[in-house]
């Protein structure tokens, strides 16, 4: 029997039908994650990273639909499952936490009630027991004074604390996979670091495989074993974090890395923002989707779209690097 991954996406296409037209939010994404691993998915907003996550959870908005490809989780094909079977997996075996802790908690229920809810849904425990577990979870995720905090309504908690509560909720059933969609974007910088620490610690202690979705490469660097870079619904580069960071093989990754400040940079080396604007997802250019913004583009780039191929230690979707050229300023 072949070695099987915890989660495996194969050539997943997800479409959104909007008023402006139908767009491929996720276009042929294949990826795997193994137990205990941490995978980063990086991209601008609209690059399809959140839609990939929602496709895995089967929580797409009304306008969204997976049109092609398969998603296998623990040897089950998720698209074959009924809604009931999917509900039994959500919150128990795979959990998800969201970007904005301000709006992701229900304002009219106490936080402890909400954090303990998965236990009541899936294990049918009584509410007193669920609250007790929630109190434990609050302590584990570092919410001080857990006993009284479980009785608070979400609006009485700070943003950081609410995100901790969200994480506690995600972990309440000890899932094997946790998807964190921009978990720190809405938070202050100091709180961001604390939340990332917490996620790292939980990943180590419980062996929960984690998919961390972010637009911030800095977050990935400190946390993830592997990283996937997405652009216009496609994976443009994929590899071990240190490989991708030390020698990016896609111009988009290369530009992203140059746009973040580095401690070891020359003091006067300027930061270079990425030229151009994110692509119009309804009317994508022919050929390589990044080509209009790419400083390395050659004639072939606007004609044919490259495939995701091995370039040195990682995979990249670029004619230039696949031809052996090194990216340099």
């Amino acid at each position: 029997m072949a070695f099987s991954h915890l989660l495996e996406l194969e050539n997943v296409h997800t479409e959104l039908s909007l008023a402006e037209g139908t767009l491929r939010a996720v276009d042929g994404v294949s990826l795997t994650i193994d137990a205990g691993e941490t995978l980063g998915i990086v991209g601008e907003s609209g690059s399809g990273k959140s839609m990939t996550a929602l496709s895995i959870m089967r929580l797409l908005p009304r306008s969204g639909r997976i049109v092609e490809g398969s998603i296998r989780f623990k040897d089950r094909v998720l698209s074959d499952l009924s809604e009931d079977e999917m509900e039994a997996i959500r919150g128990t075996e795979m959990a998800m936490i969201f970007q904005d802790p301000m709006t992701s908690l229900n304002p009219v229920y106490r936080t402890g009630w909400q954090v303990g809810e998965p236990l009541r849904i899936h294990r049918h425990v009584r509410s007193g027991e669920a609250i007790a577990t929630a109190t434990d979870l609050f302590q584990q995720v570092g919410i001080p004074d857990a006993r009284s905090r479980v009785r608070h309504f979400p609006h009485m908690l700070s943003g950081g604390m609410r995100q901790r509560a969200m994480i506690a909720m995600g972990l309440s059933m000890s899932p094997s996979l946790l998807i964190a969609d921009e978990p720190t974007t809405a938070l202050d910088v100091t709180i961001q670091a604390q939340i990332l620490d917490l996620l790292r610690r939980l990943n180590r202690e419980y062996g929960t495989a984690t998919i961390l979705i972010t637009h911030n490469l800095g977050v990935v660097a400190g946390m993830c074993d592997r990283v996937i870079v997405m652009y216009a619904g496609r994976i443009v580069e994929q590899g071990r974090t240190e490989d991708v960071f030390s020698h990016p093989e896609h111009p988009y990754t290369w530009s992203l890395l140059r746009s973040i400040p580095r401690l070891d940079a020359e003091p006067h080396e300027p930061l270079t923002p990425i030229e151009g604007s994110p692509p119009d997802m309804v009317h994508l250019p022919a050929g390589c989707k990044f080509q209009p913004r790419c400083p390395f583009a050659v004639a072939r780039c606007s004609r044919e779209e490259p495939s995701l191929l091995q370039v040195r230690d990682q995979l990249a979707r670029c004619w230039v690097t696949q031809a052996g050229t090194e990216l340099n300023a």
Partner: peptide, 17 residues
């Protein structure tokens, strides 16, 4: 359409719930 509804779905709550 609000975020906390998605949170509830992500917990595995049924549509009815």
């Amino acid at each position: 359409g609000l975020d906390y509804i998605r949170t509830a779905r992500a917990k595995g709550a049924s549509w009815r719930r």
